[in-house]
Computed example of a mutant assay.
Amino acid sequence: MPAEKETLFMKIRALLTATALCLAGPAFAQGKAPAAKEKAAAKKEEKAATKPEAAAGATANVDVKDAKGQSLGSVTLTETPHGVLVKGSLSNIPPGEHAIHIHQTGKCEAPAGAAAFTTAGGHLNPAKKKHGVLAAEGKHEGDLPNLYVNTDGKVQFDFFAHGLKMKDVQDQDGAAIVVHATADDYKSDPAGNAGDRIACGLVEAQK
């Protein structure tokens, strides 16, 4: 074969080879894409399978005591997606209707010469509202329904504190559960005209 024809033949063959490779490129890419997507999906599923389940709601136990330091029972606070569930069982409480609130400071002291449990401060009120569900500008996050104590001095209760979070009661200075001598009228600021504080319990984290 003459040199010119051989050179032309080699050029044509190289051109055909290059054209074939260009046409095959997209096909190769299309073949790899599903494999890459499948690999990414499998990795995502594996990660989801190994991810730990969400932790249960934060819980705190409260030992409620009278001014003499005698235990009257316990209250449990449990965080939910919508607020805090407040459950309790108390005894040796005077029969009748009593206010119960969450107060802003975790101190249940009864200083000599001072009203009992004033160290617990006012009601828990991070939103700076007025007291009581009947108040137009209410309510405090620490406001709760009244207790109705039987003639035997015992009471069990389940309350739901809507919008309250455990971080509000477990901040740097803690919080306290306080029982009052009389009922909350749900409107008088700042404490519902509920009378003296007859019992108090520190909010502590569940261990």
Results as ranks from 00 to 15, higher is better:
residue 155 V to W: 06
residue 152 D to S: 14
residue 108 C to N: 10
residue 133 V to H: 12
residue 140 H to R: 11
residue 106 G to I: 04
residue 143 D to E: 12
residue 127 A to E: 14
residue 89 S to D: 07
residue 93 I to C: 05
residue 131 H to W: 06
residue 144 L to P: 08
residue 112 A to I: 04
residue 93 I to R: 02
residue 128 K to Y: 13
residue 114 A to G: 11
residue 144 L to M: 09
residue 103 H to P: 01
residue 152 D to G: 10
residue 154 K to L: 01
residue 124 L to R: 15
residue 116 A to H: 05
residue 91 S to L: 09
residue 136 A to Q: 15
residue 98 H to S: 01
residue 110 A to K: 12
residue 106 G to Q: 07
residue 127 A to P: 04
residue 121 G to Y: 00
residue 89 S to K: 14
residue 141 E to V: 15
residue 134 L to S: 15
residue 105 T to K: 15
residue 106 G to F: 08
residue 153 G to R: 05
residue 153 G to M: 06
residue 97 E to R: 10
residue 91 S to M: 05
residue 140 H to K: 10
residue 98 H to F: 06
residue 141 E to D: 13
residue 118 T to R: 11
residue 118 T to Y: 05
residue 115 A to N: 13
residue 132 G to K: 14
residue 105 T to M: 06
residue 124 L to I: 04
residue 129 K to R: 15
residue 122 G to F: 09
residue 153 G to N: 06
residue 136 A to Y: 11
residue 92 N to E: 11
residue 135 A to T: 10
residue 155 V to F: 03
residue 151 T to I: 05
residue 99 A to M: 02
residue 135 A to Y: 06
residue 118 T to Q: 15
residue 149 V to K: 05
residue 104 Q to F: 03
residue 144 L to E: 07
residue 95 P to N: 01
residue 147 L to A: 02
residue 112 A to K: 13
residue 148 Y to D: 12
residue 120 A to R: 09
residue 142 G to W: 06
residue 101 H to Q: 11
residue 146 N to D: 05
residue 99 A to K: 09
residue 156 Q to Y: 01
residue 148 Y to A: 08
residue 118 T to S: 12
residue 154 K to F: 00
residue 146 N to K: 06
residue 91 S to Y: 06
residue 139 K to N: 13
residue 145 P to E: 00
residue 151 T to V: 12
residue 123 H to C: 14
residue 109 E to W: 14
residue 122 G to H: 03
residue 108 C to W: 08
residue 137 E to T: 03
residue 97 E to Y: 06
residue 101 H to R: 07
residue 124 L to G: 01
residue 90 L to E: 07
residue 141 E to C: 09
residue 95 P to H: 04
residue 132 G to I: 11
residue 136 A to T: 15
residue 142 G to M: 05
residue 151 T to C: 06
residue 99 A to T: 05
residue 99 A to N: 04
residue 115 A to V: 10
residue 131 H to M: 05
residue 89 S to Y: 15
residue 137 E to A: 11
residue 110 A to F: 05
residue 120 A to S: 12
residue 120 A to Q: 04
residue 145 P to V: 00
residue 122 G to D: 02
residue 148 Y to H: 14
residue 103 H to W: 02
residue 127 A to C: 11
residue 134 L to V: 10
residue 136 A to K: 15
residue 113 G to Q: 02
residue 89 S to H: 08
residue 151 T to S: 08
residue 101 H to S: 09
residue 121 G to W: 04
residue 109 E to I: 02
residue 119 T to K: 11
residue 109 E to V: 03
residue 95 P to C: 00
residue 127 A to G: 13
residue 102 I to F: 08
residue 127 A to T: 14
residue 156 Q to M: 02
residue 91 S to N: 14
residue 145 P to R: 02
residue 116 A to R: 10
residue 90 L to D: 12
residue 117 F to H: 10
residue 144 L to D: 02
residue 92 N to T: 09
residue 106 G to V: 07
residue 153 G to W: 01
residue 110 A to Y: 09
residue 105 T to A: 03
residue 111 P to S: 00
residue 91 S to H: 10
residue 111 P to K: 09
residue 92 N to D: 13
residue 100 I to M: 07
residue 111 P to V: 00
residue 124 L to P: 02
residue 144 L to Q: 06
residue 115 A to Y: 11
